[in-house]
Structure formats: structure tokens, C-alpha cells
Amino acid sequence: MKNFQLIIVSLLGLIFTSCGDKNEPASQYFANMYYTVPYDTYGEYEIFENEQEAKKPVEGTIKKGWMPYEYEDNTEGYEKAKTELINDLAYTEENIEEGKELYNIYCATCHGEKGDGKGYLVEREKILGVPSYDDKGRAITEGSVYHVMYYGINTMGSYASQMNTKELWQVDMYVMKLKRDLEGVEQPEFENK
């Protein structure tokens, strides 16, 4: 009788302390349409290479509303883009606003909100070697800024995966505005759309 009681108590104790695990998903009741029948975005399926559902498109194909960037990722390409590539977006307040918003998300952490190479990560000495936009040795232009954002340069990576072409040009426009601010050059008038 005594032993029986002891067993019951210890069993109860075990039951109440052994469950509840935050590393496991909760149980479900008749998960009828919970799981996808088609392939889920970023899913993992055995039939794909590397088990990745996200596959790359065929090399050389062009999707609607997008044009490939025709400069090579090397020094010659950089110089070429620097001299001849121009921004064909209109210089409007709207584009500058958009550009500023995107700049503050993707660039300001290193380049600083004013573009002087004193971003938060540089202040904390996590990332070093960020030049100011008015650096005379680099003498950035619209074309070179776009080229560097598209391919990356030295330790800066490419940002083409995070922004589309139009967004990159908007950021480019805002970067040139910051450069003019740093140099103390007059800003041009906004165009009407």
C-alpha cells in the first residue's frame, strides 16, 4: 500500500515535469490544409539540387521589366562605367526621398548618414576603411557609384540582390546629392515629372 502510493506520486511528478519543450513545435489537431501541396517558397525538397526549392534562372535569360547590366566586373568595366554611365531617372523630390530612405537602410550603417564614411559600424571600429564621398582620389561619379553598388568593390559587397535597378538609381541620386553637400556645391533644381 505504502509502496503503491509512492509509485503513484513519483509517476505524477515525472509526468508533470517531463513535458513542455520550447524547441519543438506544438501539437496540431487534424492539420487538414496546414501544409502546402505545391512547393513552398524557400522550401526544402529532395528532388531539387542541394534540396533547395529556390533555383537560379537559366544564364542569359531576360525577364520582363529588367535589363542586364552590360559592364564587366573588372577595372576596365569600372573605368568605363565611371565615364559613360549616366542616371536616366528624373531629379525629383520623390526620387530623392525614396533614395534617402533606402540609403539609410542599406548604406548609412557604414557610410554614415551624411556620406562622410563615419557610420555607426565605423564608429564602433567593426568595419574600417570607409572613405568619404568627397574623396578626391576616388572621384566618384554617377556611373561609378552604380557600378560599385551592383558588383561591390574590395571589401564592399554587391547590393543588387537587395534592391532593384530603379531603387539602385534612386540611391545613386541621393549619394551624389550627399557628395555635393560635402563639397559645398550648389544643388540643382528639382525637375517636374
Binding site: 517558397t41 524557400y42 537602410i105 550603417t109 568595419i127 561591390g152 559587397g157 547590393y159 540582390s161
Partner: peptide
């Protein structure tokens, strides 16, 4: 900024997990 890595949250149904090239940026 959150959208630095989860950039697709701005434009897509999915806020994807950043691909490894974003990690390598820094």
C-alpha cells in the same frame, strides 16, 4: 536596420531569410 538583411519584406509577400551573400557583405 531590419530591412538590410530582410530586404524582401519591402516588396514581397515573403520576408525572406537573407541569402549568404548578404552575410558576406560584412
Amino acid at each position: 536596420e531590419c530591412k538590410y538583411c530582410h530586404s524582401s519584406a519591402r516588396v514581397s509577400k515573403h520576408s525572406g531569410i537573407p541569402s549568404l551573400n548578404v552575410c558576406m557583405n560584412c
